[in-house]
Design a protein around this nucleic acid. Structure first.
Lengths: 207, 207, 207, 207
DNA sequence: ACATACGGGACAGCCCGTTACT
DNA sequence: AGTAACGGGCTGTCCCGTATGT
């Protein structure tokens, strides 16, 4: 009547930690190979977790992916775009920092996996409405932060009048597309070139 | 005692047509659900082709996908971007037409599947070098056509001096990103907004 | 509104029994048709086991075959050769019993499938090193038991001096070859004839 | 209306040569991986022949294997056993030469694939009566040549009276088993040891 | 909370053989 | 005599999810 498990595995009974580990691994894999090309078994093995444990926390693969989007992809966009822009002296400056930060990160890694938001948006948003909604929320937050910065620039008369929403969209579009092209090129060049040319446009608005 | 095959289908021995049918179906599916989410069986059934026949023409799924990229995705980019730009009076005009054409197509369809090049680039170019190379070729062709148009505009003094290559990259980036966002929005709006704002930038160059 | 599974089978969660059933069926099939001519589906169906269950216990066909060699072929050689020889009054007697036992078994069955060790050794030991190693272990154990018996015969001066290792090898060779020829003949005759002639040789050693 | 083939392959129109090439390749593969583990496609590719051509000469895989047995395996046994025994001064001498020849051949090759007759006998003779019959014919021929030599030795009073048929069977059994064990050992040792010990037995008969 | 055992069904790829055609 | 196109069916493996048990 011993209570210890029959074989190997140590049982930690730390649900928070387990959840975190699983999501971390899943985030990395979904980012690296995509959602469909990643099997639950890969995640299990990598996280050092058994099926029972995982399915206790995440009843389906989809549920896990939604958690990844909410708890990892969202925060990452906030970290790489929203915060830098908010802290920056101007929208121009914020965009420059964000692009630059990502480009440097790509160069450090040596290979280009692309942006998690972009990857999942392309792979999943047409296939499943729940995924799409969750992804869309992040795009919205991102867009709002950029538009807000542009509007505050205008309010403080640092730049000429423009359609802040449209310009924010252009910034996001060009970033997203650039990172896709960087992935196809396996180089940060498209990202850097796009940044340079986009900043020329933004710079032209400065009074 | 009939002499026709007992339970088989009628054989036509028309390899070209069979190849065409398979690639067509595969192109649609890869575009709609992505490469990994599409099973060979789906393609078989949809194309009305047997396993043996398909295997004869495309020994692996990858081989089929490479054929799709070469024979369907490439031509489609040529049709929607390269030709319109070439025929247009100016780069500004070409970009406007291309964006407009795609936006109208999206609205006609009712749902947004995204751009085949973009979808496959995101899903496959980090996972497999052969895919990446093939995709990259299309990007290159697209970029060259745009840059060439910009340079000819400059040569004919229709626009101010700019870095044609960088500007072409920006156009491609913003288009690619816009279509991704349109997919996440299931609406042509991000595409139209991006187009509007991008064209403002291009318009500013016109003398 | 019953609470039992809608269409599934009853689950017993008896891994030992399930493993046993699968290995039993596999052993019979590998013996009857050979490893390569036996499909996993045959084994599934015959053992009344689902793919998932089998995959859980034996991730590959090879793994299953290794288990068959260890848990069925080895014991069978022990039963038909090693134990009879150990229990026998002399090596001569042991060899006689072993050959006789197998010959009688063949006649009872009506058809000759050969010796499992021999069959797998021929089919697999050149193709895969892991198989070979596992098979070789059984040969070694067999050889040791025979040589030990011969040496004890010599020690007790029941037989003349001979190279016990070499003689043990000859016994094994002639048995293995005889059973192969019995298979080709579908008759126990080659086995009986070989036994008779081999025992003449062994008998000549008796003082 | 040109008559030349559309693509690559050169057409030689030399049926004899084609047949020979196919059988050669098949013999090597059946010997190396076994009948069931060898695919027709491997043979096709290796022989540089198309499916149609092969199936023109051999309607089924089985038919091809039967041809291999008749035209390659049989002759090889004749070459390695029957002729050496016939030419030898005595049965003792013939057996010595045959074993020695094979052992040297194994050492030259570096790895042990076993004896083609033995391999096919084990893999196929229980599964298919046609194979068995064809294989059995070779065993019979082999047996007759050995028994005849032993009888002529007796007639010329070189050896004591023995049951020539039984002794021939023992020789064949021990050779067959020895080569199987050599395969499992991936060494010529079991063959050499068996030969040594068997020749002691035969030597004891010499007057 | 978590681990093992298990259910079914799908996956890409390969099999042997045949048929249309030159 | 020989080629390429093609027909179906089957292979081993792996999938996601659930049930049982501790």
């Amino acid at each position: 009547m011993s209570t210890r498990p029959k074989r190997g595995r140590i049982r930690t009974n730390d649900p928070e930690e387990m959840r975190r580990r699983v999501i971390d691994v899943a985030a990395v894999r979904f980012q690296g190979h995509g959602y469909n090309a990643t099997s639950m078994q890969e995640i299990l093995a990598d996280a050092g977790v058994t099926g029972g444990a995982l399915y206790h926390h995440f009843p389906t693969k989809k549920e896990l992916a939604l958690a990844v989007i909410r708890d990892r992809v969202g925060p990452e966009v906030r970290e790489t775009w929203i915060k830098p822009v908010e802290k920056a002296a101007s929208a121009f400056d914020g965009v420059k920092r964000a692009f630059g930060g990502v480009a440097r990160a790509l160069d450090r890694q040596g290979y280009v996996q692309g942006c998690p938001l972009n990857n999942l948006a392309v792979e999943l948003s047409a296939a499943d409405e729940d995924f799409r909604r969750e992804i869309q929320l992040i795009y919205k937050e991102w867009h709002q932060s950029l538009a807000a910065k542009l509007r505050s620039d205008q309010a403080e008369r640092r730049i000429r009048e423009v359609d802040a929403d449209a310009l924010a969209t252009l910034v996001m579009s060009s970033y997203s597309g650039a990172i896709t092209m960087a992935k196809a090129d396996q180089t940060s060049r498209p990202l850097r070139t796009t940044a340079k040319q986009l900043l020329l446009t933004l710079g032209a608005l400065v009074r």
